[in-house]
Amino acid sequence: MLIPHPLLGLRDSQEFTYLGDASLMQRPDASAENAEAQFCDYVFLRDNPAGVHRELWFHEQGDRSWLVVTRDTTTHEILGAELALDVKGAAK
């Protein structure tokens, strides 16, 4: 597969490692009342859609950026890729 890196353009997926569902970026608040229940969902429950999926890829043999890649799991068509830093809306 080729991953459309937002900075570097198309790069072979062999340069990346895959993590999975991008919901991992929404880490719960540890001080919340039901933090444990939230963390159980966060750690153990993932959607596994046949279709469009937002997922995390790490450009390990590249610029070491984490990407949020939107991929159709049934066709491998990639609909977009963003830097996780940008998705998170880091205030620079």
């Binding site: 993590l19 991992l24 970026m25 880490r27 995390l56 790490f58 984490w66 996780a84 830093l85 998170k88």
Partner: peptide, 9 residues
């Protein structure tokens, strides 16, 4: 890197 970029940028 994950924690830095994806959790606490």
């Amino acid at each position: 890197e994950f924690a830095h970029q994806c959790l606490w940028p």
